[in-house]
Simulated scan of single mutants.
Amino acid sequence: MYRLKPGIKTDPKRRWALPDRIFFGYGACHILAGVYLARPPLDGFYAERIVPKDGFAGNHIFVTDGAVAFDYHGYSARRALLEHHMAGWAAQYDRKWACRIEHVTFDLLSRSDLNARKMLGPDQYFSDPVARANAFINRIDHLVAYEKATLTL
């Protein structure tokens, strides 16, 4: 699991300079999910949120159709995404890391909805994360990637 150097998340320029996968994997996953859902390349997807127990880090938002998930890794089996995420965060703690998975019912591109959950709104980044997320999503052949992910179900 990748670990950001201290101070990057609090420095808008340094955070913006991260490669896309790290930027969307470590602090802007909600923007990627919100942009995906705003103009979905595939039908039937909704957002889910990994919410760690109190005292733990590891929040993550991704989109899924219930079997296949999409996040900064691209498409994967939802089960595999959850196992990878949970194992990575569990390794960071001496005590047992735990979380719950919840259906996202708030607007993933709304500053007020996001700030209420301690996440940045799209207008709070150094530059435009919505345009960056669109560019990231547009580089993918979604049908091919989705079908490849279904082979691992």
Rank of each mutant, 00 (worst) to 15 (best):
M1W: 07
R3Q: 14
R3W: 08
R3I: 13
L4F: 10
K5V: 05
P6K: 15
G7I: 08
I8Q: 09
K9P: 04
P12Q: 13
R14E: 15
R15K: 14
W16E: 12
A17C: 06
L18E: 08
P19A: 12
R21N: 12
F23Q: 11
G25M: 08
G25L: 07
G27R: 12
L32D: 02
G34M: 01
G34E: 01
Y36Q: 02
R39P: 00
R39W: 04
P41A: 08
L42S: 11
G44L: 08
A47R: 05
A47T: 04
A47V: 01
E48P: 00
R49F: 10
V51P: 07
V51N: 11
K53F: 11
I61D: 05
D65A: 05
A67N: 13
A67D: 08
S76T: 10
R78S: 09
R79K: 14
A80K: 07
A80E: 11
L82Y: 10
E83N: 08
H84C: 04
G88K: 06
Q92R: 15
Y93H: 12
D94L: 09
R95V: 12
W97D: 04
I101P: 06
H103Q: 14
H103E: 14
F106T: 03
D107G: 00
D107I: 00
L108I: 02
L109M: 01
S110D: 03
S112A: 09
A116Y: 00
A116G: 03
A116P: 00
R117P: 02
R117A: 05
K118W: 10
G121C: 00
D123Q: 13
Y125K: 04
Y125D: 10
D128W: 05
D128N: 15
P129L: 04
A131N: 12
R132G: 06
R132D: 03
R132Y: 02
N134E: 15
F136N: 06
I140G: 01
D141A: 13
L143I: 11
L143N: 13
V144S: 14
Y146I: 09
Y146D: 07
E147M: 13
T152N: 03
L153T: 06
